[in-house]
């Protein structure tokens, strides 16, 4: 337990210090959301209708962008070798890294959501619905994205390859995330159904992600 706590503490403090990328993700999220009206036009009713979708797309892209460094930094400086060799099961170490990443990069996105909801003229209920679905859904994005990050590091390719690998995997999360937000705002589907599926997706990825990432790290390091 000490080992995992130490890993989580280290990753969070690196993300928050000079050179860390935690808050850049939020800035990216903000920028993506601000770009949308320039493409769609400053039509508030339209933006309000598309609001949940815009916020979800922005959060998806922002969490993908920050995932790139999840394993790469540790690979470059040799830390990953020692983590693989350690007595802590690699699956748990991967889960701890993903959890730290979600706390440092995913949670700020959710905190920023109300401000961005204001820009899209979402009312309080709609904004809370989107924030709640993001809270339930972003762990799934991080934990499935981790698989792509692990594959990318063993192939020595990052960035775009990661995006191509991970984006198709996150389609279900996007579908049920937006569906749950829409259901909370306007109906007619009850909120509970898509939201439960969204939570289920997160729980499944919590299990599958660390195992798949650990397997690809174990066989791919050289």
């Amino acid at each position: 337990m000490t080992a995992l706590a130490a890993l989580i503490r280290r990753d969070i403090s690196i993300a928050l210090r000079v050179g860390g990328g935690a808050l850049i993700g939020v800035l990216f999220f903000l920028t993506v959301v601000v770009l949308m009206p320039f493409a769609l036009g400053p039509d508030l009713p339209l933006l309000t209708r598309l609001g949940p979708a815009i916020l979800w797309l922005g959060a998806l892209l922002a969490s993908l962008l920050t995932l790139d460094r999840l394993f790469t930094a540790d690979h470059e400086d040799g830390s990953l070798d020692l983590i693989v060799m350690g007595r802590t099961p690699l699956e748990l170490a991967c889960a701890a890294k993903a959890l730290a990443h979600w706390l440092a990069a995913g949670l700020p996105l959710i905190v920023a959501t109300p401000v961005l909801g204001l820009l899209l003229n979402l009312d309080m209920a709609a904004t809370s619905a989107v924030a709640l679905t993001l809270l339930a859904g972003t762990p799934a994005l991080t934990f499935t994205g981790m698989i792509g990050a692990a594959l990318a590091v063993t192939l020595h390719r990052g960035g775009l390859l990661l995006a191509v690998l991970v984006l198709p995997l996150s389609i279900p999360v996007l579908i049920f995330g937006v569906a749950a937000s829409e259901a909370a705002i306007s109906g007619p589907v009850p909120f509970g159904a898509p939201f439960s599926i969204l939570c289920a997706l997160s729980l499944v990825s919590l299990v599958v992600g660390p195992f798949a990432a650990a397997a690809s790290l174990r066989h791919g390091l050289d």
Binding site: A3, L7, G78, D81, I83
Partner: peptide
């Protein structure tokens, strides 16, 4: 294993780096 790469994080202090590996490696 002491490889070519030092497994150090520039953003952490010398002591924090050492304490992390002490905690992680048990």
């Amino acid at each position: 294993y002491l490889g070519h790469r030092d497994a150090l994080k520039p953003a952490l202090s010398v002591l924090e780096n050492l304490q992390f590996w002490r905690d992680f490696l048990g």
